[in-house]
């Protein structure tokens, strides 16, 4: 129980720091820390495949994407000046929300937990689940990957002089 609380504490603090930090690079690093905390949580919940994907894609690839985008957007402070007040009041709002949520949320979900069905017999292994039962998801993922490649190719297309 203390282990879970510690992991959740790291996750919430990393999320709060990610949105409160002044520099976008620090936000990206805190997002990576958040992903690492979530992958530890997934390992603790006996979901190693999801944890490995989370660690490699979210903590690795997405962090690299964020850092490269931040480095391409030079002088982010000059590019956009925002008021810091809305970020400095965030911890107060978070504590207020946590107090309200601690009253309503655990009670509601403790009731909801009674409706969860326990049927361990119909529970195939992960490989069968991905390749046999949810094979269309793989096709959807490949289609989405192709779509994103087309999007990025068309956004960063090289302009030729003949076009104008």
């Amino acid at each position: 129980m203390i282990f879970y609380l510690l992991i959740y504490f790291i996750i919430v603090v990393a999320a709060a720091m990610a949105i409160m930090s002044k520099k976008l690079l620090n936000s990206a690093v805190m997002l990576a820390l958040l992903s690492i905390g979530i992958s530890i949580l997934l390992f603790a919940y006996n979901a190693p495949w999801a944890a490995v994907f989370e660690l490699s894609v979210c903590a690795g690839l997405i962090t690299v994407l964020f850092i490269s985008a931040v480095s391409l957007v030079k002088n982010d402070e000059d590019a956009l000046k925002e008021k810091r007040v809305k970020y400095t009041v965030f911890p107060l709002m978070l504590v207020g929300f946590a107090v309200i949520a601690s009253i309503f949320v655990p009670e509601y979900f403790a009731n909801l937990f009674q409706f969860a069905s326990f049927n361990p017999s119909n529970n195939p292994p992960l490989g069968d689940m991905i390749w046999l039962y949810r094979g269309f998801d793989i096709i959807g993922q490949i289609t989405l990957l192709a779509a994103s490649i087309f999007v990025i190719k068309h956004i960063f297309t090289k302009e030729t002089k003949n076009e104008h």
């Binding site: 999801a50 937990f113 326990f118 361990p120 529970n123 195939p124 689940m129």
Partner: peptide, 22 residues
């Protein structure tokens, strides 16, 4: 975890992570 169906949850999470990255 609550419905004791971790394989389905993991497969959905993997798809979700992929969509998120895209």
């Amino acid at each position: 975890q609550a419905t004791n169906n971790m394989a389905l949850a993991q497969s959905v999470i993997i798809v979700m992570i992929m969509v998120e990255a895209i």
